Computed example of a mutant assay.
Amino acid sequence: MNRNCLTAALLLACATLARAEDNVLTLAGGIAGAARYSGADDYVIGPLVGIDYQMANGFYASTMRGIGYGQAVGPVHLSAALGYRGERAEKNRNGVGGASGSPALRGMGDVKGGTTAVLGASWSVVDGLELELHTELPLSHRENGRALGVGLTGTLFQQERDHVTMSLAAKLGDRDYMQTYYGVSAQQSARSGYRAYRPNAGLHEMELTMTWRHQFDKRWGMTATAGVVTLVRDAAASPISKKDRSATGALFATYSF
Rank of each mutant, 00 (worst) to 15 (best):
P75K: 14
L137M: 14
Q215L: 11
H204N: 07
E160A: 14
H141D: 06
D176Q: 14
K171N: 12
T180D: 10
N144R: 13
V44G: 12
A99R: 10
G33T: 11
V49N: 02
A201L: 02
L152R: 01
L119V: 01
S38Y: 09
Y37A: 07
S102A: 09
T211F: 00
A147H: 00
F257N: 09
G39P: 09
A40C: 11
G58L: 12
Q179C: 03
G33A: 10
A236Y: 04
L251Y: 04
T7S: 09
Y181R: 06
V125G: 08
Q187I: 12
A253K: 02
F157W: 15
A34N: 11
H134T: 04
V44I: 09
L156W: 08
H214R: 03
T223K: 07
T63K: 08
D244N: 14
V44P: 02
S192M: 04
M1D: 00
S246D: 13
V232H: 06
G249S: 04
G46T: 13
V111L: 05
I45C: 04
T225F: 12
P199A: 01
G149K: 00
T165P: 04
R161V: 03
Q159L: 11
A32M: 02
T155C: 08
N94P: 06
Q71S: 10
V118K: 02
H141I: 03
K218I: 08
E205D: 12
L148S: 03
G113L: 01
Y182E: 07
E132M: 09
G113H: 00
G128Y: 06
E143N: 15
Y182K: 05
S238L: 03
A9F: 05
G202L: 04
F157H: 12
R142A: 14
A235P: 05
R198H: 13
V125C: 12
A72V: 05
N2C: 12
T230M: 11
C14A: 15
H214T: 07
K112P: 07
R198I: 05
N4Y: 00
E207A: 08
R213W: 07
V228T: 05
M64S: 12
A250Y: 02
E130N: 13
D42N: 12
T248A: 02
S185D: 11
G98K: 00
R175F: 01
M206Y: 15
T16Y: 09
G202C: 04
R88V: 08
I45W: 05
F216I: 01
S256N: 03
R219T: 15
Y255K: 08
A18K: 13
L231P: 06
A61C: 10
L6Q: 08
D217R: 05
V184Y: 07
D52T: 10
A237L: 15
V184Q: 05
A32W: 02
L251G: 06
G128P: 05
G154I: 00
L48D: 06
R245Q: 13
P138L: 09
T223G: 07
G66P: 05
N2I: 13
R146T: 00
A169M: 10
A8Q: 13
F216P: 06
S122L: 01
Y43P: 06
Y60C: 01
E160C: 04
L152S: 07
T209L: 14
T211W: 00
A170Q: 12
D110F: 06
D127R: 13
W212C: 03
